[in-house]
């Protein structure tokens, strides 16, 4: 989980061109939107693309995004859960 959160931070910085940020600047529980990193709705779309591209995960519905993208930890937890579900199903 710790490794996944570190990787996510690096991927988000790259995907969203957060050139003035380093992974250590982003707390695992910091809010990603509005306060915290200050992301907006276009960034949310970029994060959806990131999940699909890097982890082959499609959000089941748009409302999920609000909880999934709350912080790095919630994103990592979601990825871990979905990967476990996929592994169990296959």
């Amino acid at each position: 989980m710790e490794q996944l959160m570190q990787t996510l931070k690096e991927q988000i910085i790259r995907q969203l061109n957060l050139n003035d940020k380093k992974p250590e600047d982003i707390g695992n529980d910091d809010p990603l939107f509005v306060e915290g990193l200050g992301l907006d709705s276009i960034d949310a779309l970029e994060l959806i693309v990131l999940l699909q591209q890097e982890y082959k995960i499609k959000l089941a519905n748009a409302e999920e995004g609000q909880t999934v993208f709350r912080s790095i930890r919630t994103m990592a937890q979601y990825i871990t859960d979905r990967q476990a579900q996929d592994a169990a199903a296959s």
Partner: peptide, 13 residues
């Protein structure tokens, strides 16, 4: 590259 999927919204906009 991604066969018309996974398109970055920022570049499009």
């Amino acid at each position: 590259e991604f066969k018309e999927e996974l398109l970055s919204p920022t570049a499009f906009i």
